[in-house]
Amino acid sequence: MSLAVRYGATAINPVREVDSIEAQPQNPPRALTGEEVTLLRKHLADDQTAVTADLPDLTAFMLGTGVRIGESLAVLWSQADLEAGTIEITHTIVRVKGDGLLRKPTKSRAGQRLLHLPHWAIAVLRTREAGGIRLDEPIFPDTQRGFRDPNNVRRSLRTALSPIGSTARRDLGQTLRHLRRETGMTRKQVADNLTWPQTRIELIETGRIKVDHEMIATLIQPYGVQLDHLHGLLAQIHDATQPAESDKLAWIRSHALRKTTATALDQAGHTARQIADQLGQAKVSITQDTT
């Protein structure tokens, strides 16, 4: 419209008088409570799959520093000074199409920072150090002692935070898996038939997702059976839909860990500038909007 006014096609620019549309985010950032932090760390420590994926220590490190997943995976042992209780953040791990995993400098100068670790985070790193280290290796390596893929870590974290809520959900998942195998269908075939993500089938069959009657009725349609005729399955669904303690973790994503660190610093009396420096944010306004 500005161009139209400039060339005389119209006398005024009506768009200039229009206010911008402001909308609340669908999932506003939220920090974990102290109870949720305790529950999260306990759950990850007790979950063998999470332990195998090295999530307990990585999550503790992120909670103690507020750094992003890619930044956490890029830190080398040479950048940790456990005597001084500091960690140097200079790089991040990204996957570039055609090039694979790259360790790149942070996007801005604000991203390069020296952070002081809380005592419990230092204790976590000392335990890892005791197992033997090389200064040129990442603190949180893959099985080959190289850099880990941030996307794989996010996927592992999502799976770990969709926990087996109860024995009833686990038993229901086993029954559903048995029904699927009796038909000779793979998870991919079922997912394609229902136009569902394949991961949803996996989460249901491993008891790592809240279910309801309608969801299960839809799931077993490709198996050629009617839910109302399976009284034992109906009873399992009833038991599996009951609330579980671990449901409190299902909403958590990696960004919530940064939000939790920022909120803890804010409650401890740190300024917005100090919190922004901790998180590696160049603009204080970003910190103020999300803390």
Score class of each variant (00 low, 15 high):
residue 49 T to E: 15
residue 50 A to N: 02
residue 50 A to G: 00
residue 50 A to M: 00
residue 50 A to W: 11
residue 50 A to P: 01
residue 50 A to Y: 10
residue 50 A to D: 03
residue 51 V to M: 07
residue 51 V to D: 15
residue 51 V to H: 07
residue 51 V to R: 15
residue 51 V to F: 02
residue 52 T to F: 12
residue 52 T to K: 15
residue 53 A to M: 09
residue 53 A to C: 08
residue 53 A to I: 03
residue 53 A to V: 00
residue 54 D to L: 14
residue 54 D to S: 15
residue 54 D to Y: 07
residue 54 D to H: 08
residue 54 D to M: 12
residue 55 L to P: 04
residue 55 L to R: 04
residue 55 L to W: 08
residue 55 L to N: 06
residue 55 L to M: 07
residue 55 L to Y: 11
residue 55 L to T: 01
residue 56 P to E: 11
residue 56 P to I: 06
residue 56 P to G: 09
residue 57 D to Q: 13
residue 57 D to I: 10
residue 58 L to Y: 04
residue 58 L to P: 02
residue 58 L to C: 08
residue 58 L to R: 12
residue 58 L to H: 10
residue 59 T to A: 10
residue 59 T to F: 02
residue 59 T to Y: 06
residue 59 T to N: 09
residue 59 T to H: 07
residue 60 A to S: 15
residue 60 A to M: 14
residue 60 A to T: 12
residue 61 F to A: 09
residue 61 F to V: 11
residue 61 F to M: 13
residue 61 F to N: 01
residue 61 F to C: 10
residue 61 F to Y: 06
residue 62 M to D: 08
residue 63 L to S: 12
residue 64 G to H: 03
residue 64 G to T: 03
residue 64 G to E: 06
residue 64 G to W: 00
residue 64 G to S: 06
residue 64 G to F: 01
residue 64 G to D: 04
residue 64 G to Y: 00
residue 64 G to K: 05
residue 65 T to G: 03
residue 65 T to W: 01
residue 65 T to F: 02
residue 65 T to A: 05
residue 65 T to R: 01
residue 66 G to P: 01
residue 66 G to L: 05
residue 67 V to T: 14
residue 67 V to K: 00
residue 67 V to M: 11
residue 68 R to V: 13
residue 68 R to W: 09
residue 68 R to M: 07
residue 69 I to N: 04
residue 69 I to Y: 08
residue 69 I to H: 07
residue 69 I to P: 09
residue 69 I to M: 15
residue 69 I to A: 14
residue 70 G to N: 01
residue 70 G to R: 01
residue 70 G to K: 00
residue 71 E to W: 06
residue 72 S to H: 03
residue 72 S to C: 14
residue 72 S to G: 13
residue 72 S to Y: 02
residue 72 S to W: 04
residue 72 S to I: 15
residue 72 S to Q: 06
residue 73 L to P: 09
residue 73 L to C: 12
residue 73 L to E: 06
residue 73 L to T: 11
residue 73 L to F: 04
residue 73 L to V: 15
residue 74 A to V: 15
residue 74 A to S: 12
residue 74 A to P: 11
residue 75 V to S: 05
residue 75 V to R: 04
residue 75 V to W: 00
residue 75 V to P: 06
residue 75 V to E: 08
residue 75 V to T: 08
residue 76 L to A: 14
residue 76 L to R: 11
residue 76 L to P: 07
residue 76 L to Q: 12
residue 77 W to V: 09
residue 77 W to E: 02
residue 77 W to D: 04
residue 78 S to C: 12
residue 78 S to V: 08
residue 78 S to Y: 02
residue 78 S to F: 03
residue 78 S to L: 13
residue 79 Q to E: 13
residue 80 A to Q: 05
residue 80 A to V: 15
residue 81 D to T: 07
residue 81 D to L: 09
residue 81 D to E: 11
residue 81 D to P: 07
residue 81 D to V: 08
residue 81 D to N: 10
residue 81 D to Y: 04
residue 81 D to C: 13
